[in-house]
């Protein structure tokens, strides 16, 4: 039904990374959100989120390795 994403996605990797980072923190500016919503596709966000989660897990493991 929704075919309004016809225009090619303009989201760059940097923008995805930023969106995912702020998503993990849970804070996002309204203006940034608007630009995210217009330029990022769900697939990009999901892949970005998974990569972000993997990085998060790895960084935690590194921290744990350092302290033990």
């Amino acid at each position: 039904m929704k075919d309004d994403n016809k225009q090619p996605p303009k989201g760059t990797w940097l923008q995805i990374a930023k969106a995912v980072f702020w998503a993990f923190f849970g804070v996002r500016k309204q203006s940034d959100l608007d630009s995210d919503a217009s330029s990022l596709t769900p697939a990009q966000v999901i892949i970005g989120g998974l990569i972000g989660a993997a990085l998060f897990v790895m960084s935690l493991i590194i921290v744990v390795k350092i302290v033990t």
């Binding site: 702020w22 998503a23 993990f24 923190f25 849970g26 804070v27 996002r28 500016k29 309204q30 940034d32 959100l33 989120g49 972000g52 989660a53 998060f56 897990v57």
Partner: peptide, 19 residues
């Protein structure tokens, strides 16, 4: 206040809850 933050925080909680 911070509608977009709320959306992002909800998603974040959901992802973190799995690990």
């Amino acid at each position: 206040f911070g509608y977009s933050s709320m959306v992002y925080a909800t998603a974040s909680i959901a992802i973190l809850s799995c690990i």
